[in-house]
């Protein structure tokens, strides 16, 4: 009986999670500018209007740029730091990790306005570069956590075995370390990209005249007649993400079945 109660709860919770998310695509097919019930009819015109919305596409491109740069940089920084703390017994490791993780304990709005102040004092313009800097604050702690976990599960003997078999430090990294921590690197890239792609508040303060997609959407939320197009884009992004996850999972399973790749 308890077993069934828990199962029932699990499905109810799933519904709680999905209803708000599924409402959006429904309205992207609704033949009305107003996002309100009752539904008025089926249309695909909001999707047709997507291609013509150059401002939105521009914002999308900005977000892809910022997301890519943030993902690459935060993973690189995370990689270096994770290597340093798992590889060497350094004094002050705890303090350094604490400092790097600090943004997790500071509300985004404080991060946003503090960088705004920095740019103001330094006389630098608001830009996508500033947004990337802000997003690094949020993403490096995540990247570091993911990569440290991966490095800690990594057997140091394997690097010594490689050196013992004649490879120098650099080649050992490419032939042994890198392939083995690759899943961690991919996870870090993905996590940082999604986080940046979806981040609003920091970008809101720092993006200036080059809005990212969330900043653009925020603007549209005040102009209801533009919203169905935004919802159409949201539906496409959601579908694409799910397809990508499914694809990644499929590829991962392929890898598992190949006898060449062990545990």
């Amino acid at each position: 009986m308890r077993k069934h109660a828990l199962l029932l709860y699990a499905f109810a919770y799933l519904a709680f999670l999905y209803v708000p998310v599924l409402v959006l695509p429904i309205f992207s097919f609704n033949d009305s500018q107003f996002i309100a019930f009752p539904l008025t009819g089926f249309t695909t015109r909001w999707y047709a209007a997507l291609g013509a919305d150059s401002a939105m596409l521009h914002a999308l491109v900005n977000s892809l740029k910022v997301g890519t740069a943030t993902a690459l940089l935060s993973t690189l920084l995370g990689l270096l730091a994770a290597r340093a703390v798992t590889r060497y017994r350094l004094r002050g490791t705890g303090a350094a990790l604490g400092f790097i993780s600090l943004p997790l304990f500071i509300p985004d709005i404080v991060l946003g306005i503090s960088l705004l102040l920095l740019l103001g004092v330094a006389g630098l313009p608001l830009s996508l570069g500033a947004v990337v800097l802000g997003h690094l604050l949020v993403c490096v702690p995540f990247a570091l956590t993911v990569l440290i976990a991966r490095f800690e599960g990594f057997d140091r003997d394997l690097e010594e075995a490689s050196a013992d078999l004649g490879e120098n430090g650099w080649m050992t990294f490419w032939r042994v370390t890198f392939p083995l921590i690759l899943p961690g690197i991919l996870a870090s890239l993905l996590l940082a990209f999604i986080t940046s792609f979806d981040e609003f508040l920091v970008a809101y303060f720092l993006s200036g005249t080059e809005p990212t997609l969330p900043v653009y959407i925020w603007g549209q939320l005040r102009f209801p007649e533009r919203l169905p197009v935004v919802l159409a884009l949201g539906a496409i992004i959601l579908t694409t993400s799910i397809a990508l996850v499914a694809l990644a999972e499929y590829v991962r399973n392929l890898g598992v079945k190949r006898p060449m790749v062990g545990a």
Binding site: D155, D157, L158, E160, S162, P179, L180, M260, G262, A263
Partner: peptide
Amino acid sequence: YAIFPHLN
């Protein structure tokens, strides 16, 4: 043994 897990 430090067998490389990603190699056969």
